[in-house]
Design a protein around this nucleic acid. Structure first.
Length: 424
RNA sequence: GGUGAGAUGGGUGAGAGGCUUAAACCACCAGUUUGCUAAACUGGCGUACGGGCAACCGUACCGCGGGUUCGAAUCCCGCUCUCACCGCCA
């Protein structure tokens, strides 16, 4: 949620920034400002009327104590009109407040000044490309879903039977490789000072609202109706919400957390070649990093996080590229997003494996997540998060890129976790 | 699943229609005193929104949502959550 204060101070800069998302925000901004003006007027009226009626109530209290009952009755009759007026004003005020918030919630985050305008992934900017091995097409490369069945690593068919499409069953060395990747990622993250957390996999409505999944994106999440809980599509939700409704001392920043969790996404959408195998799933595993930081430090923090993810991918020896997303391709809540994509040699395409973003105050404004400065001033903190890393496409890339007629070579950094160096 | 108790500021916890501007203690901050530490003493110490250049003023908030009343932390109704004991159980 954008800050109302900012919107009032400098509406033009907000409109200009949102143009990068190809959104003409002027009508919405104008609407908010109009509602806001009305709201403040009604609020002032309501509050001064309330002040009056509070005063009267006190007066009555004093008179009752003194036993002056005749005066009490006279004053009581006067309060009726104030009450009537207040009833109308309070309803109007509530309506205006609701409308103001609703409208404010409909605006996405303002992109950072470095973000380029654009409407599709084609306009994303390639920041760098890292290739340890040649990504040139080699004849006879087998896609990962075939390798997975050839070496008995994943049982897609039985996954369909047990649950449905998009719920793969990892078996034997496949399951072991998953576990190895999770542990490798967690170790890399904790080595860099991220505190390891095991969060719940279900969250309540307030938490889903805090990070921006609600309202409007309910369709992406599995919902447990009986208990009104949402199954997490990412551990970003429980991690970031740990500090919801809190005021953190400045000295405690940055707060750096990492967690492994399965992620559940309904992903109502396309089927076909692009979502075959591990490319797109309803349940997948991910290790996430989340930072809560001082506004002055958040962009430096973002760079640090990006470098950290790069390092992990280099350790794995996977060819990857780093993209800076254009305005139109960024998520609703983000101010600046970097995507990491690994090269899938058999599919001859790039696969997104991580998305690292700075949300500035967009989430913390909803979360009421603030920090206290030395001079006791309270301000909204910044939140950031990133995948370090999402497993399925990493798995796909390892299988495809490291295949040979003799089997699949496991990256050396994983050997101590897998206990094997080769799958054959 | 059963039964009972509860939800008050950073923490403990009083408060049972108007004397509450939410007591007291602890923690925290500033100052005084002190050779240092400790102690003692004095003062301060919630959040949000609105108004104001500001000092400051107003409003709301005692789990959440309604209601009764001139007036609600306090009374009434609904909901949520927590704890304890019993049952079951990884």
């Amino acid at each position: 949620m954008l800050s109302l204060y900012l919107l009032r101070q400098d509406p033009e800069s907000v409109i200009k920034a949102l143009l990068k998302r190809n959104i003409d925000a002027k009508p919405i901004v104008d609407k908010i400002l109009l509602i806001n003006e009305q709201r403040r007027e009604i609020q002032s009226k309501t509050e001064s009327l309330k002040a009056e009626s509070n005063k009267t109530a006190k007066l009555i209290g004093a008179l009752v104590r003194d036993g002056k009952t005749s005066e009490v009755n006279e004053i009581k009759s006067q309060t009726a009109s104030i009450k009537k007026e207040l009833l109308v004003l309070e309803k109007t005020l509530l309506d205006l407040e609701t409308k103001e918030k609703e409208t404010l919630l409909s605006l996405p985050n303002t992109p950072h000044s470095s973000v380029k305008q654009g409407s599709s992934p084609k306009e994303n900017e390639i920041v760098s490309t890292w290739e340890k091995t040649s990504k040139k097409s080699i004849d006879g490369l087998i896609p990962h879903w075939e390798l997975a069945s050839k070496y008995n690593l994943i049982d897609f068919e039985r996954g369909v039977k047990v649950t449905g499409a998009g719920f793969p069953i990892y078996t034997g060395n496949g399951a072991r490789l998953q576990r190895a990747l999770i542990q490798f990622f967690l170790d890399k993250n904790t080595q860099k000072g991220y505190q390891e957390i095991q969060p719940p996999y279900f969250v309540n409505e307030d938490s889903s609202f805090g990070t921006g999944q609600l309202p409007d994106k309910e369709g992406q999440m599995y919902h447990i109706q009986n208990d009104n809980l949402f199954v997490i599509p990412t551990s970003e939700i429980p991690l970031t919400n740990l500090y919801r409704d809190e005021i953190i001392d400045e000295s405690e920043l940055p707060i750096k957390m990492t967690a492994y969790s399965p992620c559940f996404r309904r992903e109502a959408g396309s089927y076909g070649k692009d979502v075959r195998g591990l490319n797109r799933l309803h349940q997948f595993d991910k290790v996430e990093i989340v930072c809560i930081d001082h506004p002055d430090d958040s962009y430096q923090r973002l760079d640090t996080m990006v470098n950290h993810v790069s390092e992990i991918l280099k350790d794995l020896g996977l060819p990857f590229r780093l993209l800076r997303l254009c305005g139109g391709d960024m998520g609703f809540t983000s101010a600046l997003t970097y995507d990491f994509e690994v090269w899938s040699s058999a599919q001859q395409r790039w696969l997104e494996v991580s998305s690292v973003s700075n949300f500035e105050t967009f989430q913390t404004n909803r979360l009421k997540l603030r920090y206290r400065q030395k001079n006791n001033k309270i301000s909204l903190a910044h939140t950031l998060n990133g995948s370090a890393l999402a497993l399925p496409r990493i798995m796909a890339a390892i299988l495809e890129n490291n295949q040979s007629p003799n089997g699949i070579k496991i990256p050396a950094v994983l050997h101590k976790y897998t206990g094997f160096k080769n799958i054959s």
